[in-house]
């Protein structure tokens, strides 16, 4: 019973903080301290959202599609490279420093290059998402493979297990929690990555919508689309968490045991 009231409180607190900020914002725009055209009231934003809903959705769908395709390719590449680095120590020594260094390149700086190379279609958008989502997953997986219990590996060796069997039974499952942590971060990067690359040219997508709203000084639409990006990112992260629960059923069991 206590547990339930605690969990209700854990949900009420952030909801309360959110409402408080919303309230302050509303008051600020109502009193006119900040001019209407610069900071539209929350009500105006909701109105803009509803008025332009079909249009927003069709743009959102394009961005989500780019984000998902990019995320899928990024994950696959990260998986392949992490496995390779785990298998060949020299590959890790050669590539990992480059990977880390590559993360200091600002996304904004490479996005225009990608557009120049690949045109205004979806290709540069997907490429940017791949680049931004790849790293957290690759590094997470690599750490995960290393986290496998050396004694468990020795035990499997004593059973006569081959390298592939050790990977399947010990290393891969040990890496799963790390993989999902990385994937969660990457999922939030994916939408933002898609939107940023759409800013720099394109025909559809939330980034394109944002650029048009900005050029028209339609602040209410700007806010509406910002919230939409946030919501889409949160939904995507939530999906990753769900996927994690489904693919690691033993984790839930352990937790229930501790609570009982």
């Amino acid at each position: 019973m206590k547990r339930r009231s605690e969990s209700i409180r854990d949900k009420l607190l952030p909801a309360g903080a959110f409402l408080l900020i919303l309230g302050i914002w509303w008051v600020l725009s109502l009193t006119g301290w900040i001019p209407q055209y610069m900071l539209p009231s929350p009500v105006d934003v909701v109105k803009a959202f509803i008025a332009d809903f079909p249009n927003l959705m069709s743009h959102a769908w394009v961005s989500v599609e780019e984000a998902l395709i990019g995320l899928a390719i990024g994950t696959a590449l990260a998986f392949a490279l992490a496995c390779g680095m785990d298998r060949f120590l020299n590959l890790e020594k050669a590539v990992l420093p480059l990977l880390v260094a590559s993360q200091t390149i600002p996304t904004i700086a490479i996005a225009p290059l990608l557009v120049l190379w690949m045109g205004f279609g979806v290709a540069p958008k997907i490429a940017l998402v791949v680049i931004t989502t790849f790293f957290p997953i690759a590094v997470g997986l690599l750490d995960g493979f290393k986290s496998a219990d050396a004694d468990a590996v020795a035990l499997l060796r004593s059973m006569g297990a081959k390298r592939g069997q050790i990977f399947r039974h010990v290393k891969f499952p040990a890496a799963l929690p790390y993989f999902f942590s990385g994937l969660r971060i990457s999922a939030s990067y994916a939408v933002v990555g898609a939107v940023i690359s759409e800013w720099l040219g394109g025909f559809e997508g939330l980034g394109v919508y944002m650029t048009r709203a900005r050029k028209a000084y339609a602040f209410d639409k700007m806010f509406a689309v910002i919230f939409l990006v946030v919501i889409v990112s949160l939904v995507l992260m939530r999906l990753v968490t769900l996927l994690r629960t489904v693919s690691m059923p033993w984790m839930g069991k352990a937790k229930k045991e501790r609570e009982a």
Partner: peptide
């Protein structure tokens, strides 16, 4: 070994 080394995911 002393550690039972049961694999938690199985």
């Amino acid at each position: 070994l002393q550690k039972d080394l049961l694999l938690e995911h199985k």
